[in-house]
């Protein structure tokens, strides 16, 4: 394994915001917008049940779905197409001060109860599959940030603050 993937980000914290209900795109946009304003968010992804563009199987296969959850939201000036109904948000942050700020943003925006926890939610080291997919020179920031079964070209990772993330 490349040295680039070992012992990096070990001082960072990983958080999960787990609301008691699935979030509407409007609430998700507001919450993500609030989080994006905090300095010290390293990487973040949203997790939830996928919303298909067309009916995947059954007699109506191929019919357009037009789900109200499938919207384009704007976070920190960047348009993001929601392909899932937002169930949880997992992120990596720099330190406990950022964690406290994220907790405050959640408390002020979410009107429903939510769980807020620290743990390991995003892989910190690349797996054999990552190595096979991206090779030895892959960007360590991208580990665990894409759907392992998805095509990278279809589900790109949005870089909101390219200046801060370029190292």
């Amino acid at each position: 394994m490349s040295e680039a993937f070992s012992d990096t980000n070990t001082n960072t914290l990983q958080l999960e915001i787990f609301p008691s209900r699935l979030l509407k795109p409007e609430t998700a946009q507001e919450l993500l917008g609030g989080i994006a304003e905090i300095e010290g968010i390293i990487r973040l992804f949203i997790h939830g049940p996928r919303i298909p563009q067309t009916v995947p199987y059954g007699p109506a296969t191929g019919e357009p779905v037009q789900h109200p959850g499938n919207k384009v939201i704007e976070v920190a000036g960047q348009a993001i197409e929601l392909a899932v109904y937002v169930g949880s948000i997992r992120m990596e942050v720099a330190d406990t001060d950022v964690k406290r700020q994220v907790r405050e943003v959640c408390g002020s925006i979410l009107s429903i109860p939510f769980e807020f926890r620290e743990g390991n939610f995003i892989p910190r080291k690349q797996t054999v599959s990552d190595y096979a997919k991206r090779g030895p020179g892959a960007d360590p920031m991208m580990i665990g940030m894409t759907d392992p079964k998805g095509k990278l070209k279809h589900y790109p990772v949005c870089v909101l603050r390219s200046d801060n993330n370029e190292e």
Binding site: R21, L22, L23, P49, Y85, G87, I112
Partner: peptide, 8 residues
């Protein structure tokens, strides 16, 4: 959908 949290 039956075992998922309810939407808002």
């Amino acid at each position: 959908g039956h075992s998922l949290r309810l939407p808002e």
